[in-house]
Design a protein around this nucleic acid. Sequence first.
DNA 1: CTGCCGGATCTCAGTCACTGATGCCCCTAG
DNA 2: CTAGGGGCATCAGTGACTGAGATCCGGCAG
Lengths: 416, 416
Amino acid sequence: MTEIRQPTPRRGTNLPRMGDFNLTVILEAIRRSSGGLSRVELAQIVGLSPQTISNISRRLLDQQLIVEAGKEGSGPGKPRTILRLNPAGMYAVGVHLDPAVITFVVLDLLGDVVKHSRMATPGGDPAGVITSIAEQIQALVEESGVDAAKIAGLGVAVPGPIDLDEGSVVEPPLLTRWNRVRIREALAEATGLETLVDKDVTSAAVAETWAGGASGAGSFVFMYMGTGIGCGIVLNDEVVRGTSGNAGEIGHIVVDPEGPLCDCGLSGCVKSSCIPQVLVAEAEAAGVLDGSRHGADGPEVQERFAELCDKADAGDEQAIAILDKSATLVARAVSVVTNALDVERVVFGGPFWGRMAPYFLDRVPGLLDKNNAARMIHGLEVVGTGVGEDVGAIGAACLVLEHMLAPRAQRLLLEG
Amino acid sequence: MTEIRQPTPRRGTNLPRMGDFNLTVILEAIRRSSGGLSRVELAQIVGLSPQTISNISRRLLDQQLIVEAGKEGSGPGKPRTILRLNPAGMYAVGVHLDPAVITFVVLDLLGDVVKHSRMATPGGDPAGVITSIAEQIQALVEESGVDAAKIAGLGVAVPGPIDLDEGSVVEPPLLTRWNRVRIREALAEATGLETLVDKDVTSAAVAETWAGGASGAGSFVFMYMGTGIGCGIVLNDEVVRGTSGNAGEIGHIVVDPEGPLCDCGLSGCVKSSCIPQVLVAEAEAAGVLDGSRHGADGPEVQERFAELCDKADAGDEQAIAILDKSATLVARAVSVVTNALDVERVVFGGPFWGRMAPYFLDRVPGLLDKNNAARMIHGLEVVGTGVGEDVGAIGAACLVLEHMLAPRAQRLLLEG
DNA sequence: CTGCCGGATCTCAGTCACTGATGCCCCTAG
DNA sequence: CTAGGGGCATCAGTGACTGAGATCCGGCAG
């Protein structure tokens, strides 16, 4: 029920805040190291004195967030004690409420999936669906066998415009019955867990920072390839949510001046020319896919898109052309964002990413580099996420971990 | 000579950092209040105890950054002592190196211009120009009569791609001889002042946060209408510089699918369809302006653009149509940025802004609202900057003030 | 004119996180 | 087996924030 958003008159900080912040800094350093870190190494990395590191390590050990994992001795002297994250130190539950499917995960402190499940999104009354979700969470937690007391909270990733104050979605195109339903409150009550709601693309970006390894550090844009295309933005290791939590809307960037007319009045927006549904329709129009079976609901599109990719993989030139073109168009949209924000990396992911990856990774890097306004100063890395298809739900769970354990500047400031 | 950029492995914080940070927080609160603040009010706003406020106030008074300015007694009890910024407590020098003109300002702590001057940008050797700039700064400071010891530093705003490490511009389209000239080092040595270099659009955004009053708070995009169009980005009171300081490049956002072909290969980019030079050319083509006098250098374009606006002001329908259309196109570009970042405000400014303001303010707000993805959650304020035409140079000076006195999260972290 | 009262600010310890110096512990090398 | 070196803990010490109480200042009633 805690608020994600940031208050504007900037507030001061004090001693306890500082201590908590340093704790998260150290935890983050350990988390981002591949094989654990010794106290001396930590002192060097975070710039605090060895004594402080020792004290904070003790607190972390007491809280069971880290464990001492063996020693590493090279040369003379006492070998270093390696500190590692304790996977079982904390868990979080994530739910991705997508128009087509609801995904559930239980994540451990490392960001690894302990247990996951899915269900088709019921079309019925939201209140009923919320009850089902709560039951499903209950069941999942029990099956996973994790200590319920160690579950820090529940994260919920939802599409489209959200209202952070209400913890609700606002007029989502494909979840019309959910308009302004107070999901956060309802699920907090139904599950008894502290609950956070955020956009799916933002959640995906948070997943990358938490569970994505090296590609989740620094400043990057996460391109979420789902039913729609959106992006999550991370600058200097902190996710950008925007004033109301709605950052990342890029559906109306024009990428194809000769493209189809969009409902916004312009031609060739991302939304009208590169989302999977449009690609499938193009393929049908071109005769690559059988056009007789229609149906624009989520799973249907995913299935047909997979068919399109199968054909392309098998060498069908028209299919390849469609995917190549979409890569070109998406690259243009990405360029707009990367040039505006000057990030160092673009991470692709989302449910449709897996199949399109080879086509995109072949073309996008070159196109981005060509359009990179800071080309002479630094390159632009392009990678696919290591988090996988469930990045929405995993990100939802990571919202909780991020909120509790990430060294956000916000954590230092006194609250209102 | 200090580095603006942020190191990536996040570092811890300690006691002295905390004290300095709180000092800047209090200074910022006083700065943002209209008529000064008492100690009790400060305690409420920043969340620190009255005692801490007292201690920090004393430090600020010792440093002469603030002054006690009268008392405010209403009702019984000891009247509150009002604390106000001391304009003479600190000064900064700003230089805007534009392809057409170099602008100089001396700013006081309030962000008010103490003295300013200009010169046409000499075409010669950069080394010689740097000497002239240093002389000009010297002269300006002497004429202004401010205490040289109170000058905190020199800010330099430059166009186009920059290299923050070098403190140089990289292949700027209109300052070709300045490619990779180490401006920061050269000017620091020539003037003896601590020097910061940043992009002009970023500087303009910083000017807005420092000298722009209420419209410089929170999250906003500063649209800089100059020879080119770029934007400065401020999120939660902190300016976004990007990985290499090159954030804000929006020249290749497609805003007019039927527009002219751009060198990037697409049609109707911002750069090819709404910059003043293009509008002037359009006006010439349409016969609104006399097309015989050509010349694409800076002052020439500004003059011809002023003519175009004169005609529009006088009721020339073709001229009005050209300006209206450009407002529509720019609004589309702004929408792309505001939707991606979910800011609460758009601030327009820059050398060309004054003349176009009425046409833009008439159309842009409506268009932005229509395209606002978060329309149902919050509105989008559109304002013209209060900083004026010299926003580039003023922003350059504000870079120094911001670097020394703004409560940036970065200030808390230990350095490498 | 004087005393009372309320509110703002200051004084004085007290607490707590980080730091520096010192010493113990553990391992490798000779 | 011993010397030596590096890792880590212990013990004061510093300094920023906090809480309680004292002090100061002006208005108001008598």
